[in-house]
Deep mutational scan, measured.
Amino acid sequence: MTEYKLVVVGAGGVGKSALTIQLIQNHFVDEYDPTIEDSYRKQVVIDGETCLLDILDTAGQEEYSAMRDQYMRTGEGFLCVFAINNTKSFEDIHHYREQIKRVKDSEDVPMVLVGNKCDLPSRTVDTKQAQDLARSYGIPFIETSAKTRQGVDDAFYTLVREIRKHKEKMSKDGKKKKKKSKTKCVIM
């Protein structure tokens, strides 16, 4: 069974824990209790493949930012979460993405942009803004509501699919490099 290491990042209060708990335990946590770091595991079937999701729910508070490099190193894919009623959390996505790329030393890291709290009427981040940002990053965008469960499975499952595509691409690139290195030079 394939294991996928997913990391949920975003500013404090955007609903990272609520999304994760909704996926794992099928219930909505409405009281806000700032996370330092929590880890969850769940076995699911995605596109006919049974897999184990190892999900790291991270601290959004700035005082825990020193811990970010460590979990970013171990993560295979990242859910970059903002709240649709919090423009600052949307603007912060850029910083999370840049930090992930720096730590992973790669421009090509599996990510999904997630606009959470889409059940709320007080939207300050337009869907088109988020779609445009995701398009500019070359990553999928999904709106979710941890409260109603809308888009929750889709967000995590899409990230797994992005990781699969990335692994497939990397193995193809690896095979191309191996083929090239088999060419021999004969000096007579």
Results as ranks from 00 to 15, higher is better:
10 G>K: 03
86 N>H: 01
111 M>L: 10
45 V>L: 05
58 T>W: 14
133 L>K: 09
103 V>S: 05
121 P>A: 11
114 V>A: 06
31 E>F: 03
37 E>C: 01
109 V>L: 07
132 D>V: 07
101 K>S: 10
177 K>G: 12
125 V>C: 10
131 Q>M: 11
124 T>D: 13
174 G>S: 10
57 D>H: 00
108 D>N: 11
67 M>F: 02
61 Q>I: 14
112 V>F: 05
77 G>D: 03
21 I>H: 12
178 K>W: 04
11 A>F: 11
184 K>S: 14
21 I>R: 12
49 E>F: 06
36 I>W: 00
88 K>Y: 07
77 G>L: 08
36 I>Q: 00
84 I>N: 14
155 A>D: 03
51 C>Y: 11
59 A>L: 15
87 T>I: 15
122 S>L: 08
34 P>D: 00
65 S>N: 12
53 L>A: 05
36 I>A: 00
159 L>E: 14
44 V>C: 09
6 L>A: 07
100 I>L: 15
106 S>T: 14
123 R>E: 12
127 T>P: 09
184 K>E: 13
170 M>L: 10
121 P>H: 12
158 T>F: 13
97 R>L: 15
72 M>T: 13
124 T>A: 11
159 L>S: 02
78 F>S: 02
58 T>N: 01
16 K>S: 03
119 D>E: 08
36 I>R: 00
26 N>T: 03
19 L>V: 12
64 Y>Q: 06
53 L>E: 05
159 L>R: 13
115 G>N: 06
25 Q>I: 03
14 V>C: 12
136 S>R: 07
23 L>T: 15
133 L>E: 13
49 E>K: 11
152 V>T: 11
134 A>E: 15
24 I>T: 10
61 Q>D: 15
133 L>A: 10
107 E>I: 11
4 Y>F: 10
17 S>R: 00
74 T>N: 10
56 L>G: 10
109 V>H: 03
154 D>A: 09
25 Q>V: 04
46 I>M: 07
79 L>D: 03
122 S>T: 13
44 V>N: 09
69 D>K: 03
43 Q>Y: 04
10 G>I: 04
162 E>Y: 08
141 F>I: 07
82 F>I: 06
98 E>F: 03
32 Y>T: 01
157 Y>G: 07
162 E>S: 10
44 V>K: 01
56 L>S: 01
47 D>C: 03
20 T>K: 02
110 P>R: 03
26 N>W: 15
167 K>Y: 10
73 R>D: 07
142 I>K: 03
39 S>Q: 05
49 E>Y: 08
148 T>S: 02
132 D>Y: 07
117 K>F: 14
154 D>K: 08
138 G>W: 05
125 V>Y: 11
49 E>P: 06
167 K>F: 07
20 T>D: 14
22 Q>K: 06
110 P>E: 01
39 S>T: 02
50 T>P: 15
16 K>Q: 12
131 Q>E: 11
152 V>A: 07
122 S>H: 10
36 I>V: 00
136 S>T: 04
121 P>K: 11
14 V>A: 11
49 E>T: 05
165 K>S: 08
136 S>C: 13
107 E>S: 11
183 T>N: 15
153 D>K: 03
21 I>K: 13
97 R>A: 11
84 I>S: 14
15 G>C: 15
156 F>T: 12
159 L>F: 03
105 D>P: 08
182 K>Q: 14
6 L>D: 06
86 N>L: 02
13 G>T: 09
160 V>K: 13
27 H>Y: 14
150 Q>S: 15
8 V>Y: 04
167 K>T: 14
2 T>S: 08
73 R>E: 10
55 I>P: 00
177 K>F: 04
30 D>P: 04
56 L>P: 00
116 N>W: 04
36 I>E: 00
98 E>R: 09
119 D>Y: 09
136 S>I: 06
135 R>K: 14
40 Y>C: 01
13 G>C: 12
119 D>Q: 07
147 K>M: 14
129 Q>P: 13
153 D>M: 05
151 G>V: 09
158 T>M: 12
35 T>Y: 01
129 Q>E: 12
78 F>H: 14
61 Q>S: 13
6 L>F: 11
76 E>D: 12
31 E>P: 01
102 R>C: 13
